[in-house]
Design a protein around this nucleic acid. Structure first.
Lengths: 345, 345
DNA sequence: ATCCTAGATGTACACGCGTACATTTTGCCA
DNA sequence: TGGCAAAATGTACGCGTGTACATCTAGGAT
């Protein structure tokens, strides 16, 4: 208890507070006396009371989507981002308040702020739905600092840390073309993610820039899960076999891997009968046989940036909405996208 | 502000508090008046002040190890556990305070409690080191509720939720033997995890129960990382080729997969030239070719139990150290452990 | 020696809630 | 109608900090 420390050190409670917070002028000798007294009494200030007095929780909230059975949609994705957030938060003296959001729960993010549970918040894996936009708009209206990662809301100016997925997708498709593919399918994710929109745009741009035709029947849709990729193997196998498909760009690794497994059951091998490239460069991409080519996304760095953006106090911290510049992606070529032999039947 | 709500509803602040907390007798009509006033004024109590007044943070701390470059050691492992913890915490009205612990940081877990940052805490991925034991012993001495998951400290009575890994390992090895293996290697993890000790014991017991000899030169050691498994491929390949090895039990999937990849480079195929089984039944086990046999560990359930154990208030909650009963494991046979053809050269 | 200023410390209180205790109101029975 | 217990509400205060403001001290310039 602070009072006892004060008495033991022969000073007032205010001085104890000053020493422990390093504020205000304190004589060196006094400071030492206080520190010794605190040490001797094993005194540590209560974060609870401290937060209360300061009216700041010291928490950075992180909203993570949780699925009924899957628990976490993509462990790699979230783990990387979370680690990045964690590093920056620790750096700034904040703690992470992790909250799992179930699909049908109300989006009352503003309560997190109004109840002072968090000082700032990062939302992951949001869908572009009206309810979601509305909830976020409310946060903006009430001037609560928050940030999205790897996701934009078209037409809004929410603070966001994103990568240039149009360019990343272009890179992926260009690579397939360079490997000799001319009929390239896109296996995309749900269009309620800006990610998917970007993939589609990059895919189309690359095709058209290289003088290939864009055909909507080459665009397939999954849900970013492995199973959804696996299930698309059947229609794609047919096209590969009848020669109307030689390359596949999957919007993430999980679907790419599912696809690869499904096509394998049709005796179709990636890097041999067709070229395949995924997206995210998740750890799974190194587990498959053949190993999966992919586009590396700096998730860790994105998490870190988002947290710094929100918490930075040193420079021009929580100034404008200031969406950060988009981060660069990197093509990672492994075996699945190689296509030396042509696939004539 | 509560005072305004009170005024608007024509009651005292205490009554507002009572209504919002559902404590004490309140006339139904009064209750409605207060709720309406609160609604109208958009009043929500500050969690900060509430926690302060109650002297309970409402946070369940979760300590997660973080590695310099790897960020998270095993995303599957932690994601599952974390999700389980999250579910139980939400169920009990607690929030998760996530803290990444770097290897060289001091183990001052007791500060978390003494500063009232958390009401209870779950530690993951601890090593059995003197500093660690000491830190935990301090928590016990100060009567702070905490729980370990998937890990015991021999000789201590720390609250723990664990699975019977001796039995799980026995199952794995018995399976290999049933598939016709007679010379089975163990690729273990670091012995500073009780997990590893258990694996070793189960491995040995199974061998001896089946009348096979236990030989220490068949025990290899990795660090649970894929790379460490990959690097063990060289010595193991040699033994497989000279006929002194036909089965491998890896202490986790990551090492098993690395091993599988390494052995593949020696033209050795799991399920054909040797039988392989991993442990954890992580999502990666389904990504390999051939798919990896494994032992399923109910990580999600373990996380949930640990959290309930700590937070449960309804039944006999935080009573004794009460280590929970060990959870059952399940053998998951896929392709890598099948061994129809003998491996005569 | 005096005065002034900056440095050092003490005093007092607010922060927003929960809650023990005092007080008032209600409902019921004699 | 009076009385009494229980229900309903109000009053007052503590929780452990941070901090504005007042006060005191020391040291240098005049």
């Amino acid at each position: 208890m602070r009072k006892e420390v004060a008495k033991l050190a022969g000073v007032s409670e205010a001085t104890v507070s000053r020493v422990l917070n390093g504020v205000g002028p304190v004589r060196e000798e006094t400071k030492q006396r206080v520190l010794e007294a605190a040490e001797q009494l094993q005194y540590v200030p209560s974060q609870l009371a401290r937060s209360f007095a300061r009216k700041r929780s010291g928490h950075l909230g992180v909203i993570i989507p949780s699925l009924p059975k899957v628990h976490l949609f993509s462990t790699y994705y979230f783990s990387e981002i979370l680690s990045g957030i964690g590093e920056a938060a620790k750096e700034q003296g904040y703690d992470l308040l992790l909250m799992f959001r179930w699909p049908d729960e109300p989006r009352d993010y503003d309560l997190l702020f109004r109840t002072h549970k968090v000082d700032a918040c990062i939302m992951l894996g949001l869908h572009d739905l009206p309810v979601e936009r509305q909830a976020l708009a409310k946060l903006v209206a009430e001037e609560h600092p928050f940030c999205l990662i790897n996701q934009r809301f078209e037409g809004e100016t929410f603070r966001t840390v994103d990568a240039d997925h149009v360019d990343g997708s272009r890179m992926a498709v260009n690579h397939l073309i360079a490997e000799g593919c001319s009929r390239i399918a896109l296996v995309n994710g749900p269009l309620t993610y800006s990610n998917s929109i970007d993939r589609h745009r990059g895919y189309r741009e690359a095709l058209e820039q290289q003088g290939l035709v864009y055909a909507s029947d080459l665009v397939y849709q999954g849900n970013f899960g492995r199973k959804s990729g696996y299930e698309l193997a059947r229609p794609l196998a047919e096209r590969i076999q009848n020669g109307t498909l030689d390359g596949i760009f999957a919007a993430n690794d999980r679907m790419a891997i599912g696809l690869m497994q499904g096509l394998h059951e049709h005796e179709l091998i990636a890097g041999r009968h067709y070229a395949l490239i995924g997206y995210d460069d998740s750890d799974g991409s190194r587990l498959t046989q053949p190993q999966l080519s992919s586009v590396a996304v700096p998730f860790f760095e994105m998490g870190r940036r988002a947290a710094r953006l929100l918490l930075a106090t040193d420079s021009a911290g929580a100034n404008g909405p200031g969406t950060d510049g988009e981060l660069p992606l990197q093509l990672v070529v492994r075996e699945s996208s190689r296509l030396q032999t042509s696939n004539t039947p």
